[in-house]
């Protein structure tokens, strides 16, 4: 009797252990497959991105869609962020009589952090979603197969131009965002908080180093790469019709945003 119980207990333990090992194995294999797929895609994309001849017309068209058409959204995001930043730092700094440093805080925050990160998040929502949805639709309507039958490499034709355009345009948009944020801060500082314009401008430029701006732009370029690779990967491997396209788009945006925020921290430890 006790032997039978012990046997059952061991059997139960083995079953549970096997269940866990299998579960870990299944998740592990899925993760490795996905990781392998992304690494291959990154390699292929980089390879086709630097190989001549460049598809200039296609790249410019993507630059327009990804970059130029995003300017209005970036404008609103950056101006209001700069404005609220001036206001909030004024409120806090006033408590220890440091309100004269508002211009400095706005300039450093925008160039080092908020300019690149907010621009990237906006672009993940706007351009990333568009890329995933477009490529996803092409996948489920067999347009990607059609490209292959026309002896055209889809990484070269579809992904490399999007990758290049995002990596070029995100830093460019970040410059715009940096500038507009600082202008927004100036507007609030001078017109609402009665700062002296000359002092405000001096405080803005005094402590700002070229490195602050350059490192911000390097981050922006990396974020651009993340958005393009993640969104194209999601689109490219879409399965299952309209529902699949919806899922691919959503996961492209969510994953891009998460990776931007996480990599931002680690980039900071490396760059600054």
């Amino acid at each position: 009797m006790s032997e039978a119980k012990a046997f059952l207990r061991v059997g139960g333990f083995v079953a549970v252990a096997r269940f866990f090992v299998e579960a870990v194995g299944t998740v592990g294999v899925a993760f490795l497959e996905e990781a392998g797929r992304i690494v291959t895609l990154i390699y292929q994309t980089l390879r086709w991105s630097i190989r001549r001849p460049f598809d200039v017309r296609n790249i410019l068209r993507q630059c327009e869609a990804i970059g130029v058409n995003s300017i209005p959204v970036i404008l609103i995001t950056a101006v209001f962020t700069g404005m609220v930043l001036a206001y909030q730092s004024y409120t806090g700094f006033k408590r220890f009589n440091a309100e004269s440093l508002v211009g400095t805080v706005v300039a450093l925050s925008m160039t080092r952090e908020l300019g690149p990160v907010l621009t990237a998040l906006v672009l993940a929502g706007r351009a990333g979603a568009a890329m995933a949805a477009e490529l996803g639709t092409m996948k489920v309507t067999e347009q990607i197969d059609a490209l292959l039958t026309l002896a055209t490499n889809p990484v070269k034709y579809l992904i490399a131009p999007r990758f290049l355009a995002t990596v070029i345009m995100l830093p460019a948009l970040t410059v715009v965002a940096d500038l507009l944020g600082i202008i927004g801060g100036y507007f609030v500082g001078v017109n609402v908080l009665d700062a002296n314009p000359t002092v405000y401008i001096r405080r803005t430029t005094e402590y700002l180093k070229v490195d602050d701006i350059v490192n911000g732009l390097i981050k922006a370029a990396v974020f651009g790469g993340i958005i393009a690779i993640v969104s194209c990967d999601r689109g490219f491997y879409t399965e299952g019709g309209a529902e699949g396209v919806g899922k691919a788009t959503m996961s492209a945006v969510v994953l891009s945003m998460m990776l931007i925020l996480i990599s931002n921290y680690f980039l900071n430890t490396v760059l600054f």
């Binding site: 092409m138 309507t141 067999e142 347009q143 197969d145 059609a146 490209l147 292959l148 039958t149 026309l150 002896a151 055209t152």
Partner: peptide, 28 residues
């Protein structure tokens, strides 16, 4: 090179919807 020997008509035609008809036909 192999695929250049082939032409394929897809079930849903699979035309590139960002290109005009002649750009589709002349794609290859």
């Amino acid at each position: 090179e192999l695929r250049k020997k082939f032409g394929m008509l897809f079930q849903g035609a699979a035309l590139f919807d960002s290109l005009t008809v002649w750009e589709n036909v002349g794609f290859g």
